[in-house]
C-alpha cells in the first residue's frame, strides 16, 4: 500500500521551503547528513528535472551511515531517501545503483530500493526480487527474531513485481504462496501483484474480503491495493468499507485512472462525489 497515502509528507524537521538550487547544494555537501536527507526528499517530491539531480542522488544512494537513535536518524537515512527520490524521478539511469542497493544488508534500504525499481518498471529487477522471495513463507516470509519485521521486506518486493508487470509463470509461482501468509498486509500485497499481472478475478476475492477485516490498517491496505490495480468491480465494496473517505477517494481515483470496463467512468465519479 506504500506509495499511496501520506508518504509525500515532509520528513521530520523539514524546516522551511527551499529552492532547487539550495536542494542541490545541500545534497552536494556531505558534512551535514540531515541537510542531505531533506534535500533528497525535496528533489523527489518536486520531481526535479535539473540535470544534476539524478547523478547527485545516485551518489547519495551509495552513501552508507550507521543508525543514530539519539539524533533520530535511521540506518542509511540519506541513501534510503535518495532511493525513494530516484523512483519518483523516473530516470532509468538509476536502475543499476538501485539493483546494487537491493543486495545491501540493510533491509530498510532494500525496501526503499525495490519500491523505486517498481516505480521505474525495471524488468532487470524481477530476477533478483524473485530470488529473494523464492524461499517462501518459511524463509523470506518468516519473522526476524526480536523484531516486527520479516526476513525480507516482502510487502515491497511483492508490490514491485506487480508494478513491473512481467507476467511470467515462474514469477506468479513465487508470489502465490504469500496469499497464505499469516499477516493480512502480505496477503493483500500478493493479491495485488497477482491481480495486476493476470487480471484474473479469482485473485480479487482475497483483496475484497480484506476490505471487511477487523483491523483498520488492513482495510486501508486493501483499499490502496485495489486502487493501484484499478479493479473496477470493487467499486461498491470500496464505498461500503469502514475507513476514511480520503483513502476511499484515492482508491476510486485508481479505479478510474488504472482500470477499464464496468462500472463506467460516470459511475465512479458519482461515487467519488458522494464521498467528498
Amino acid at each position: 500500500m506504500a506509495g499511496a497515502a501520506d508518504l509525500e509528507a515532509p520528513p521530520p524537521g523539514a524546516g522551511e521551503p527551499i529552492s532547487e538550487a539550495e536542494a542541490l547544494r545541500r545534497l552536494r555537501q556531505s558534512e551535514d547528513q540531515s541537510l542531505q536527507y531533506y534535500a533528497a526528499w525535496w528533489l523527489g517530491r518536486m520531481r526535479s528535472r535539473h540535470p544534476d539531480a539524478v547523478p547527485l542522488l545516485q551518489a547519495a544512494l551509495r552513501q552508507r551511515q550507521p543508525r543514530n537513535p539519539a539524533a533520530g536518524v535511521e540506518h542509511n537515512a540519506v541513501a534510503r531517501n535518495a532511493a525513494r527520490a530516484l523512483g519518483k524521478l523516473g530516470d532509468p539511469r538509476a536502475v543499476d545503483d538501485l539493483l546494487a542497493a537491493l543486495e545491501d544488508n540493510d533491509d530498510g534500504l532494500r525496501e526503499a530500493a525495490v519500491r523505486a525499481l517498481g516505480d521505474l518498471r525495471a524488468t532487470a529487477a524481477v530476477a533478483p526480487i524473485c530470488r529473494r522471495l523464492a524461499s517462501g513463507l518459511t524463509g523470506a516470509g518468516a519473522p526476524q527474531a526480536n523484531s516486527p519485521k520479516l526476513q525480507e521486506p516482502c510487502e515491497a518486493l511483492l508490490e514491485a513485481l506487480g508494478d513491473i508487470g512481467l507476467a511470467e509463470d515462474p514469477v506468479l509461482r513465487v508470489i502465490e504462496p504469500f496469499l497464505n501468509h499469516d499477516r493480512p498486509l502480505i496477503r493483500s500485497a500478493a493479491g495485488r501483484a497477482l491481480l495486476m499481472l493476470t487480471g484474473d478475478p479469482r485473485w480479487a476475492n482475497d483483496l475484497l474480503s480484506l476490505l471487511a477485516h477487523p483491523q483498520l490498517q488492513v482495510r486501508r491496505a486493501a483499499l490502496m491495493d485495489l486502487g493501484a490495480v484499478g479493479w473496477r468491480p470493487a467499486l461498491e465494496p470500496i464505498c461500503r468499507t469502514l475507513a476514511e473517505n480520503s483513502l476511499k477517494l484515492i482508491a476510486l481515483r485508481g479505479l478510474l485512472e488504472h482500470g477499464q470496463g464496468e462500472p463506467d467512468d460516470e459511475a465512479i465519479l458519482a461515487a467519488m462525489d458522494a464521498l467528498l
Binding site: R253, L256, E257, D265, E266, L269, M272
Partner: peptide, 11 residues
C-alpha cells in the same frame, strides 16, 4: 495534471 480531476471537470 491529475486525470481524474480533468475527467470530472469535463463531465
Amino acid at each position: 495534471p491529475t486525470p481524474v480531476v480533468r475527467l470530472r471537470a469535463s463531465l
